[in-house]
Design a protein around this nucleic acid. Structure first.
Lengths: 109, 109
DNA sequence: TTGACATGCAACCAAACGGTTGCCTATAGT
DNA sequence: ACTATAGGCAACCGTTTGGTTGCATGTCAA
């Protein structure tokens, strides 16, 4: 897996927002994903292209539309292979504790 | 936590390499971290500044040196709060896929 | 105290990035 | 057949980014 492409794709808040939207409802078209965002269709299309290149999003053409699907596997791989090595065990309890302290609701972003 | 700063800090391969180095041996000085990298000292210093701003690295001055320490908490928090939900999505999808395999007609509920 | 060493600061530069606009292609609906 | 709709492509633009160089500051050691 090209780890770098995944990290760079995740670096932009608009792209993370797009992943959030696909997480909320999978298989959306470009137009649907544009809806409500303060960006041109072409900007969203570029972001989706970057997400596709990082294999975080898979797209299927259906007629004149293009349906976009979230692929969480690369993220999970990063969590497993890269983040996991940073002393997951030692920190796990601390995170749970800190999370509870900071915001019982938890922020998604 | 400023999630965005962490994601942006992680987006650069040189910075991830620096985290790797600190993971291998914690508490290194700027000079030590420069060693072997094809970059000027100032470039490394900038990277460390960005990592510090993202709270991924903590630094302590000791005399004329500055010791850098890896702080894995922000990474673990991301894994927990943000990546975790996509992992759950993956599990869900796998379950759905498996269900469909087992009963192609779909469940009657 | 003088010189070497570790780091900080600021200006500068090319390249990448996020976004726009304009135009083109293909499919759907009437 | 014609028109509206969904999307793609490419040029362009301002800002950020990753890097450099030059100089300043602070600290150790002789």
């Amino acid at each position: 897996m090209e780890t770098d492409a995944v990290f760079r794709a995740l670096a932009d808040p608009s792209r993370r927002a797009l992943l959030d939207r696909l997480f909320a409802r999978n298989g959306q078209t470009l137009m649907e994903l544009c809806d409500g965002l303060a960006m041109s269709r072409q900007a969203v299309s570029k972001h989706l292209g970057i997400l596709e290149e990082a294999t975080l999003v898979t797209a299927v053409k259906r007629g004149r539309e293009k349906l976009h699907y979230l692929n969480p596997v690369p993220i999970a791989e990063i969590a497993d292979r890269w983040i996991g090595k940073f002393e997951r065990a030692r920190v796990k309890d601390l995170v749970a504790f800190k999370t509870q302290l900071e915001s019982p609701e938890g922020d998604t972003e």
